[in-house]
């Protein structure tokens, strides 16, 4: 019995699928469409938290990702860093991931730092600290003891902005960029539950459905992957800086949905034929 056109559509060669995906993703990267984005409440709330912090408040940013996490968190990390640096806040970088210091270094080169912002006075980079949640607890209870030197080996007592920052009582907001739920929960337990410090996070779309369970009580805001990063960019800069990636993502999602429908039409057609 020869196959109907619908049945044939259910057996498309994998190589054709891969080629289609490649074309659909590559075209918007070469010729961006610039699809508008809707800013979600989870992103807006984190933005508002940073925006409404009183001058001199201390913000900790913890990028917990390596090279493979760049597409997920890179946009958001740069957008939040840029936002905090634009405001009269004190910024601390800490990471609990071995590759984190390189991410911080790369971000500081790519974000435009306002000329009035000075290292050691307005922002400081402490680099990597081992120990996961134990390290988070150490930073929250006594940052001077937990990290005696910054990444340039400057003793913490010689860093001007650190003279007034000792423990969680002196901190206002922690934003963590991670796919690991333990990092988010660790920051909630050690900073939010104990000292009332606001905690926000950026996570992969896969983890987003879990992380929003803590929103808006324990987490002040949640950035959802690359699209959330773009939303944050829109709020900070009034435009999306890397819109072609979002267009590629949109087209990729659309292609998957179209082929889900094709696959299921073929599946139903086969079922009817067997009846």
């Amino acid at each position: 019995m020869s196959k109907s056109i619908f049945e044939k559509l259910g057996d498309i060669d994998t190589r054709i699928l891969y080629a289609l995906m490649f074309i659909v993703v590559a075209l918007p990267l070469l010729f961006p469409i610039g699809l508008p984005i809707e800013i979600k409440k989870y992103t807006r709330d984190l933005y508002n938290a940073v925006e409404t912090l009183p001058a001199g408040s201390v913000v900790i940013l913890t990028p917990e990702f390596g090279p493979s996490g760049e597409p997920h968190y890179g946009t958001a990390f740069r957008a939040v860093t840029g936002h905090v640096l634009r405001r009269p806040l004190k910024l601390i970088f800490i990471t609990h991931t071995v590759q984190g210091p390189m991410v911080i270094d790369d971000t500081l080169k790519r974000v435009s730092i306002p000329p009035d912002k000075k290292y050691g006075v307005d922002y400081v980079n402490f680099g990597y600290i081992a120990g996961g949640e134990t390290a988070m607890a150490a930073v929250a209870t006594d940052i001077h003891k937990a990290i005696p030197r910054d990444i340039y080996e400057t003793p913490v007592e010689n860093i001007p902005m650190m003279s007034d920052i000792h423990d969680g009582n002196d901190m206002s907001l922690v934003v963590t960029f991670t796919g690991d739920g333990v990092n988010v929960e660790g920051h909630i337990r050690q900073f939010q539950a104990r000292y009332g410090v606001l905690v926000g996070c950026c996570c992969e779309s896969i983890g987003f459905s879990h992380r929003i369970s803590y929103y808006p009580t324990a987490l002040v805001g949640v950035i959802n992957d690359m699209v959330g990063g773009a939303e944050y960019q829109q709020l900070v800069y009034g435009r999306i800086l890397e819109s072609s990636a979002l267009d590629a993502q949109s087209m990729g999602h659309l292609l998957i949905i179209v082929f889900l429908l094709i696959g299921n039409v073929s599946f139903i057609s086969r079922r009817f034929r067997k009846m």
Partner: peptide, 9 residues
Amino acid sequence: MLTNAPIGA
């Protein structure tokens, strides 16, 4: 998928 990408809106 349609919510997580601008194409949905």
